[in-house]
Design a protein around this nucleic acid. Sequence first.
RNA 1: GGGCGCAUAGCUCAGUUGGUUUAGAGCGUCUGGUUUACACCCAGAAGGUCGGGGGUUCGACUCCCUCUGCGCCCA
Length: 876
Amino acid sequence: MPIAAKYSPREVEEKWYQYWLENKFFHSKPNEKPSYTIVIPPPNVTGVLHMGHMLNNTIQDVLIRRARLKGFNACWVPGTDHASIATEAKVVAKLKEEGINKAEISREDFLKHAWDWTENYGGQILNQLQKLGASCDWDRVKFTMDQDLYESVINTFIDLHNKGKIYRGYRMVNWDPQAKTTLSDEELVYQEKQGKLYHIQYQIEGTEEHLTIATTRPETLFGDTAICIHPEDERYQHLKGKRAIVPVVNRSIPIIEDEYVDVEFGTGCLKVTPAHDENDKMLGDKHQLEVIDIFNDDASLNHFGMHYQGKDRFEARKLFAQELEQKGYLVKVENHINKVGTSERTGAVIEPKLSDQWFLNMQDLAKPALDAVLKTEEIKLFPKKFENTYRNWLENVRDWNISRQLWWGHRIPAYYIGEGKNDFVVAKNAEEALELAIQKTGNPTLSHADIHQDEDVLDTWFSSWLWPMSVFDGIRNPENEEFNYYYPTKDLVTGPDILFFWVARMIMAGYEYTGKKPFDNVYLTGIVRDKQRRKMSKSLGNSPDALKLMEEFGADGVRVGLLLSSAAGNDLLFDEALCQQGKAFANKLWNAFRLIQGWEVSENEMQPEHSKIALHWYETKLQSTLVEIEDHFSKYRISDALMATYKLVWDDFCSWLLEIVKPAYQQPIDQQTLKQVLDLLESNLKLLHPFMPFITEEIWHNIAERDPKEALVVSEWPIQKEFDVTFLKDFETTKEVISGVRNIRKEKNIAFKDAIDLKMINNEAFSNQFDGVIQKLCNLNSIEVVQDSVEGAFSFRVQANEYFIPMDGAIDVEAEKEKLQTELVYLQGFLKSVEKKLSNEKFVNNAPEKVVAIEKQKQADALAKIETIEASLKAL
RNA sequence: GGGCGCAUAGCUCAGUUGGUUUAGAGCGUCUGGUUUACACCCAGAAGGUCGGGGGUUCGACUCCCUCUGCGCCCA
């Protein structure tokens, strides 16, 4: 049956993915084999597949498919996370479009909408991963809000609370006034903004004197409760112990002294607003200042803002500055660039705000996580350079604010009984909470109506940090068979941007709950950027449509394209040309198969010598590449592993082996050679399968009819055998000879179809084992060993050997001489550098013997070559 | 402001404890080629004083210092 000259991925990919699914090849159950587990970094339910996912999941698929071939029980657990902030924002926006206001519906109704949304869009990204070829165990799909995972999160909260690690604190948090929720430090984006520095006069109480402060936020003046000066500031000694009057507000506030004040900045007088600035809060605590919160939840001013009540903070700033100016309090205004924290999700400027939040004490949790990576190296980061970043964060770790003022997520299992700070219990459900509440208060008449659950939910990371455990139900049932079998997992593949939010915290949770690491290796991928090094983003519109890419280049082509340029930890500059390269490679492989498949077989034909030795060579080459690939994989150098395979298949298999064994036009091939070539092709397919799963499976089944249990996806990785390095080297020399002939043919315009003769002076005593190969690839009548230079011939040299191609017609003696001269000059330069080393006594005495021997060998080789060239020059 | 990292061919990157390297790969560029597997191809070639300066060493792309330019993380 003739097959198409061009490989067309579309139907092939669809067909084989279905086949793999039908035969449950991706499904894993515990068995006697060693496990190889990867849990997917759960993409969030709002997402669609983008280039980052493509890269990340291609790498995971390569690892898991290779593990499967290597005889592990490979299990890749897919799933998604609920992304409370992002999802809630999307649902709120969608409801708004439908004319529904979140504030006007119940929590229950809102959650119904959120679940609808999740069911409609949440699985989308997983379907797209299938197009990429991801060999996840789809029977194991998990979602962070599934009942079992939900319970795991709640149990963890209760446990950590009982251990005293979770506490309720009144703290300054990053408040997003648009989403009306708290953000973690990690969800902030600092942006430089052009602002102004306002210099404002405060009257000193009981005098006609003034002091001047400088502030970027005049509107917070309504919350001022002190002025602070540096105790040693010469300029302000007279202010000590006095009080100042807040302009317009007319409140009297103390002037305090603290070394915290930077005398160089602004005027050296600092206004202190403990409710609205982290540093001011610290000063406030130290000096027992009053705390005046002047903002509503949406960052408009409350009644403390007097006549600005209800006005937004930015509008109030503008208007208040005008009022201060009119009333003569504003001394001057300077331009000032400051870094402002904004919300990663909504873009709103963050308002520091004091509020009641839940915190997790990180001190004890951090210790084992730090040791595991840096001391015992139980967990390895690839590339290693991220260890410093990791250390830096963990050594300066701060308590984790785990509450979010949202509805979509795991609701905090705290139930309040009264108004007091400690009037609450933490329990699994309302029933248990009531019991505990009765115990705690000693009041048996309490009913459900008397307790109410915290309105807030937990940070999404508080569920994903359990992911490697909770997907196997390891939190609720730590002794279950699956958890024991699959955990610890093997590799985690993710981006360095979530090293802290997620990776470090998973490690903490792992040690806290199992005493074991959650994974052995963490592979941190680069960020996919465009050719101009810009991050791919929706707003820039520079991200290609992943699905369209796969349509254009095939999933295999895109996978190869992404991997080719993704050295571990380096950002990947994405260029469609790379996918084109991947596609071309698929086509090359396809055509190699077409060639082999098209051969007529002759049962009588004997195997030619050149085929026999070439096959032996390729077997050896494959073995040496196997070692190389293994080494690359052990260091997570996936792109190098791919490149080694790429060159093996394209250069060694297609360009060398197939050209050698290829029968003459319309001639049949002998059975033995065909069989061996097919075997080797099959080995190639195994090596390629992790990178290009679809086309390899397609060719695999075209080679022979096979049962599902013989499918490539579940076959076996080639066995590593001993191999002869010298033999490989000899072939490399042979290639040089062939190149030499080809060069002469090209330079002298000798058509390939014209057979020529080759004569050689065999100074190096090369074996003639590859003569048949040279003869075939160069179209030679004969190869003859001679003692002296051949006159009237073109010549070239390989090492100290000299080769001649006798040709009728004039030889350009001058050109030959010039060529030889160039070679000679280079060799003499080389020789000189070697001899310089060897004549240096210190080198000879100090360098290891082996190194000296190498230099001596270089010297001898160079001398032999020079001799050859000089002889040739003389002969001319 | 504190910390970390990077700088090698036009581009993207290798170069593993200093010594088989007057430096490698892929892509791109250039030259030639339809020899029926593949022009998504074949055969070749050119291209780098390893960011600048200094030092250690018999020997430095590799180690140290410094300058310059980029990047990242934290505050």
